[in-house]
Design a protein around this nucleic acid. Structure first.
Length: 283
DNA sequence: GCTTGCGCCTGAATGC
DNA sequence: TGCATTCAGGCGCAAG
């Protein structure tokens, strides 16, 4: 699943392979991919024609390519990929949008099996697109304020994992890295956010930044190839995961079998010993 | 205003 | 074997 490290990997690839090029044509092969572009697929395609795209920017799991006074904004959802390659190769079944360029070089394809991802054109150029103004800074950007984050987190009347997944509080964290960071910080996912102590929050933030940095390092190896890829279910970071998706397997720290609990119609993985369940937790 | 839960979507995995 | 059901995930929005 594309979370912050995967999106940053894509951003770097786009910077290398797409920035500075002029779009020649846009084909929307599935309208759902541009459902958040309110003027519709035809407008999306027409408006981008002839635009020169600049180096991409990112906040959390969103990235955008400035194009004159507007920006092409992308969210990969669960299964989205932005792939660059030779224009004459076959169209795979899940290609939703295809961009070709004036230089007749490699094309750009938005591929998305589960169609939770989307693209849209937003005004503002390099500025933060207004449609994602509610997305909080992510822990890897300069604008991220640890003190402000801690204060907001500790005002939440919900469980700590739910808070971590709330992109208006801190962006970039999804289900996988939330579980991994909580394991590293030895915090149970249901701990009440408003009962966390300062050192708990610091440990958690350190863990989030660590796990992001490690995943980014693992994902940065494929940059030399002429495509920008996001691994899906079987990502390159899989082998480094301590608890996520590892129900019944030993905790790397203490050997206790990892536990899976139902959480918001999905799962939360944790070590029952390293991350003891609180008496008055909240989901 | 804040918190919670649903619906969107597809294919792999599981159950009968 | 074949069909039906479950599950995974992020986000926006509606309901509480």
């Amino acid at each position: 699943m594309p979370e912050l490290p995967e999106v940053e990997t894509v951003r770097r690839g786009l910077e290398r392979h797409v920035a500075g090029r002029v779009i020649d044509a846009v084909e929307v092969l599935h309208p759902r991919a541009v459902r958040r572009h309110v003027a519709g697929p035809a407008d999306f395609a027409a408006a981008l024609r002839g635009r020169r795209v600049a180096a991409p920017l990112r906040r959390g799991k969103y990235l955008w390519l400035p194009a004159d006074d507007d920006a092409l904004l992308a969210h990969l959802g669960m299964s989205g990929q932005l792939v660059v390659g030779e224009p004459d190769r076959e169209l795979s079944p899940h290609v939703r949008v295809r961009f070709t360029f004036r230089d007749r070089g490699p094309d750009l394809r938005f591929i998305d099996q589960r169609t939770f991802g989307h693209l849209l054109l937003s005004p503002g150029g390099a500025r933060l697109p207004s449609v994602i103004a509610h997305i909080a800074p992510d822990p890897l950007e300069d604008a991220f304020d640890r003190v402000a984050f801690a204060a907001r987190l500790r005002s939440r009347r919900s469980g700590i994992k739910r808070a971590l997944l709330d992109q208006s509080l801190v962006s970039g964290v999804g289900n996988i890295y939330a579980d991994e960071a909580l394991w590293r910080a030895r915090l149970h996912w249901a701990r009440a956010a408003d009962r966390l102590r300062g050192p708990d929050v610091n440990r958690l933030l350190d863990a989030v930044q660590e796990v992001f940095a490690e995943a980014l390092g693992a994902g940065g190896t494929s940059f030399d190839r002429l495509y920008v890829n996001v691994n899906g279910e079987s990502g390159y970071f899989d082998r480094a995961l301590a608890v996520y998706g590892r129900e019944g397997q030993p905790c790397p720290r203490c050997g206790t079998p990892v536990r899976r609990d139902p959480f918001m119609n999905r799962s939360a993985y944790s070590c029952p010993v390293c991350q003891p369940r609180p008496r008055n937790g909240r989901a």
